[in-house]
Amino acid sequence: MSKIKSHDEYVFQLVANIFLGLMLVVVLLPLWRVFILSVTPFKYVDNSFGLFVNPIKWTVDSYAQFMSHPSFLIAFRNSLIIMFGGLAINLFMTVPMAYALSVRSLPGRKWLNVVVMIPFLFNAGLIPGYLVVTGMHLQNSFWAIIIPGAISIYNMFIMRNFFAEIPMDLKEAARIDGAGELFVLFRIVLPLSIPIMLTIGLFYAVGHWNEFFTPILYLNSNKLQPLPVLLRNILMGLNTNEFVEYDTFSQVSVQSLKAASIFITMLPMMMVYPWIQKYFVKGSLAGGIKG
């Protein structure tokens, strides 16, 4: 950037980079600790702050234990269904709405924006929404998790603003060629909107993957519970029954089982987001604030 590396510049870089390094440690250290605990075998000895792997005594037993948990595969499958099913419905509902509302010449657009804005600004709280879901008898199915959040108003706004910024002449040219609106949407607008689609798609997907409260609220059947609910049960010790008489207890330590289940639950998200990271800036900038 600068031609002469002055003393000032040098010190400054040092401070900035040290700060960044510090942040790196602050974020990674707790996660590293979780990882180390997950491969530490059960032993009653205080470990060396749990920050180093003992090369002789590490084990993946706790991972095996968690993954052979009778509910693990089902929970994992449920999480995938909720995430992909939810995402499909999110996009199916959000994209057309955002696109239609991005058209400035749409008659009644002002009123429609008001209609959208009111529930965005005013939230009636947990119970009334829950009565809607139970009133429609959606409970005990994935629909109860997916449908009520089909459109996040915030995400829809971000998408709308992004669509609105796509140059009009491109859309107009296509329309004059006689193309239908769906054609314009799919062939002109969406290809130009890949960054926003990926960002919003990720927002939605993460939301679904991490959801634990609505499943606790609405899903009864044991075959419907997603991964975070299983993790919560393990973390809070809800799964160890007072009256267990037979040999159902695990062979690994509670700690390392917890650590392994934490790690497995967060792994998919960890693997996905870095690939989409470069689009975040565009995605989050288009949001919220009206220009």
């Binding site: 058209v103 009111i118 529930p119 009636a124 709280g125 809607v132 459109i151 239908g180």
Partner: peptide, 26 residues
């Protein structure tokens, strides 16, 4: 603009039920 209204149909129905329904239940 009827194509746009068609696109808005499902989302608005959704709004009526899941965003305004709670307001009614309140």
């Amino acid at each position: 603009h009827k194509a746009f209204y068609a696109m808005l149909f499902l989302p608005l129905a959704y709004f009526a039920i899941f965003k305004y329904g709670p307001l009614v239940n309140a």
